[in-house]
Simulated assay, not measured.
Amino acid sequence: MRSKLVSYGTIGLGLLLFTLLICIGFGSVHLPAGEIVGILLHRIPGLGRWIEPDWSMASEQIVMQVRLPRVLLGMLVGASLSVAGAAYQGVLRNPLADPFTLGVSSGSAVGAAVLIFFGWQFSLLGIFTLPVIAFLTGATTLWLVMWLARENGKIPIESLILSGVVMQSFLGAVVSFLTAMSKRTVNEILYWTMGSLSLRGWSYTAILLPYLALGGLFLWSRARSLNLLALGERQAAHSGLNVESTKLVILLVATLMTAAAVSVSGVIGFVGLVIPHMIRLITGPDYRLIIPLSALGGGIFIMWSDLAARSLLAPTEIPLGVITAFVGAPFFAFLLYKKKKAREREIS
């Protein structure tokens, strides 16, 4: 496992750095990769004095104040949503589960939209007000979805997806109502409903980073538990795992990561569905590999999606959630088709 993690991780980090340079360099002002590397190295304490600046101050401002914080935020958002999606799929043993399809993202967005509507974004806990409230509304949504889907102590896949769709539709209507009623904050709320990384500075990165770091490490430390759950709850219990408490804690941490991501970027769908499933197809079902590689894959996916969002119709920017939906919705339909065919083969 360790050798596979090193080999896949090295490839993933290489792709991540390549994507980072491309996304920073591409825009209305093209910046060469060598210049970007020089600017970044020049900002490292102790190393900058060995590098003689041969670039303009305008280029440095574009990199450090405009593009780098946006690209890094996209990387963190993608990693958070992908790791959360992997955790949801592992606990629920369902490849169709993710924070978006289960309505958790929409639930988190409702909390953020209410705060924006009333102007309470920083009223309770400063910059952490949005993530905390978004977590509470997202966790409540998850509990309602699972309660609606439960039948005789079990949660069928079809009922779970249907309950998620119901909650997502209802909560989307709540956000739309707030948007219609709002005058001063209508554009800001609309950004949440469609997802965007525009006009996001370093403070947003500072909000999300601790949630990803602590939540991601915690979920990675529970990778063996997720592997046991993949064998079935009865088998996991026989192996000494406290099934119910493990499921609850993992779902709460994944919901917290989702809420933090939604609080800085709005609702970006299908990332937690597509990326963990693709990683699983490449590396196998071991969550010791799936969780860290999903973080890398999610970061890469969102960075490329954001590049497409701001460049395809430039100077008009496409909402980021639209780009991910163009990729994720057909993939979701493909997974449903595969499950349908597998069920038909079992019957025949």
Rank of each mutant, 00 (worst) to 15 (best):
S3D: 13
K4I: 12
Y8W: 15
L15M: 12
L16E: 09
L21Q: 02
G25D: 04
G27K: 09
S28N: 08
G34C: 06
L40S: 07
P45W: 14
G46L: 11
W50E: 14
W50Q: 13
W55V: 07
S59V: 02
S59Y: 14
M64F: 11
L68I: 10
G74H: 03
M75P: 06
G78H: 00
S82G: 04
S82M: 07
A87T: 08
R93N: 07
P95N: 06
P99T: 02
F100W: 08
G103D: 11
S105W: 07
S106G: 09
I116A: 10
I116R: 08
I116N: 08
I116G: 13
F117D: 01
F117E: 01
F122Y: 10
S123C: 03
G126Y: 10
F128S: 12
P131V: 08
I133Q: 01
A139E: 12
T141C: 11
W143K: 11
L144N: 01
I157G: 11
G164Y: 09
V165T: 10
V166K: 09
V166I: 15
M167W: 03
S169H: 07
G172W: 04
G172S: 07
A180L: 15
M181C: 13
K183L: 09
N187K: 12
L190D: 06
S198E: 14
L208M: 02
L209C: 03
P210C: 03
Y211E: 07
A213N: 00
G215N: 04
A223C: 04
S225I: 01
N227W: 08
L229I: 00
H238C: 05
N242Q: 14
T246V: 06
I250A: 09
A260H: 02
V264W: 13
V264L: 05
V267W: 06
I268P: 00
G269R: 05
P276I: 05
L289A: 04
L289C: 03
L289P: 00
A295T: 04
W304M: 14
E317K: 02
A325Y: 10
A329F: 14
K339A: 09
E344M: 12
